[in-house]
Design a protein around this nucleic acid. Sequence first.
DNA 1: ATCCCGTTGG
DNA 2: CCAACCGGAT
Length: 228
Amino acid sequence: MTQKKPLNPDVRSVYDRLLAHFGPQKWWPADSLLEMCVGAILTQNTSWSNVDKALHQLKEHGCLTLLALAAIDEQELARLIRSSGYFNLKARRLKAFVRFVIDGYGDLATMLASPFTRLRPALLAVYGIGPETADSILLYAAHQPVFVIDAYTTRITSRIGWVEAQVRYDDLQVLFMNHLPAEAPLFNEYHALWVMLGKDYCRPRAPRCGLCPLKSVCAEGRRSGAGA
DNA sequence: ATCCCGTTGG
DNA sequence: CCAACCGGAT
């Protein structure tokens, strides 16, 4: 009877608010496409400051090339990326990724130029690469218009009231892609802005709702005072 | 549902 | 001090 009102989040206006508040983020922070891919794997469930240290270690030891990563001993690699946590696991994952690129494409540029519909499933089949890591590489290195979903995006959109907290990765991704033009620069900025909001305002504990740029459009934010 | 794991922010 | 961290595999 009471048909559930189709949720129609104003995906665009929220983007505008975030952009106005934080300014352009110009992601992904990396000096090369390979560094971007490596960073995407190292940052799995790990704060970026710890990943940044690991990337510097790799640089200092000349290990931010495909051939160097292919040649280095896995234990030694694990030691270099220690600061990023899960170092044994991530060393294995980096090795798997590097082998995937070299064996399948010869070099990174060739892999990144591979058509999206073939590349995404191929990436997902690599050990240690799941949806978020695959889409990060596709968006930020291959410049494909695919929306990246992460823990921040899920937490924020569920608090706002757009989705339930247990929303599946693909469902939330479809929501964004159904409400936005398929433009890589737009998806790039939007994801980066979600991260900024999630880190500085929409935190797991003690969210700063009073200062949040989305206060007036947020289901939770409106509870803690009249939004302007 | 559990494991992987060092580092930092509240 | 202890959650949380730009997840993914088993």
